[in-house]
Amino acid sequence: MQPENTGDMARRRAILTDRERELIASDDTEEKEYQYQAASRVRNKIHDELPTDIDILEENHPELLKELREVVCEDGG
């Protein structure tokens, strides 16, 4: 059985969910607490989940890891 709205399924996210993108980009001072929560979730993904993904790519698909590094480090870092 396929999902009804496959158009939304075609677009994938990277680190941020759509809502996290909205919150972090927002200047709305009434959403500051939600912005802090979103930043905390993203920080946890960076420190807790991303290293595991990098290890898996390094061991199983080094070319994808190279592509990831090129995107993340495109300023030469």
Score class of each variant (00 low, 15 high):
5 N>F: 03
69 R>A: 07
2 Q>I: 05
70 E>N: 13
47 H>I: 12
36 Y>T: 12
13 R>D: 06
49 E>C: 01
75 D>T: 05
42 V>H: 00
14 A>H: 10
21 R>F: 12
71 V>H: 11
1 M>G: 08
72 V>K: 02
42 V>G: 03
72 V>H: 03
44 N>C: 12
11 R>H: 06
52 T>H: 14
31 E>Y: 09
55 D>G: 11
31 E>V: 10
36 Y>W: 13
10 A>E: 08
36 Y>I: 12
16 L>V: 02
21 R>L: 09
2 Q>P: 15
10 A>R: 08
53 D>V: 11
70 E>S: 13
11 R>I: 11
3 P>A: 04
25 A>D: 13
57 L>M: 10
29 T>R: 14
66 K>S: 13
28 D>Y: 03
56 I>P: 09
42 V>P: 02
26 S>P: 11
11 R>Y: 09
6 T>L: 05
65 L>Q: 02
75 D>S: 05
76 G>H: 01
46 I>W: 00
62 P>Y: 02
9 M>P: 04
25 A>Q: 14
46 I>Y: 00
76 G>N: 04
13 R>G: 02
48 D>A: 11
9 M>I: 11
34 Y>Q: 15
52 T>V: 14
72 V>G: 03
60 N>S: 13
53 D>A: 10
75 D>W: 02
56 I>Y: 15
21 R>N: 09
24 I>Y: 02
39 A>E: 09
21 R>A: 09
60 N>P: 06
40 S>N: 06
9 M>S: 13
62 P>H: 04
66 K>A: 13
66 K>I: 09
47 H>Y: 13
32 K>Y: 10
46 I>R: 03
75 D>K: 05
10 A>C: 06
18 D>A: 13
22 E>K: 03
13 R>C: 04
59 E>R: 15
74 E>M: 07
53 D>S: 09
61 H>A: 14
34 Y>G: 07
70 E>I: 08
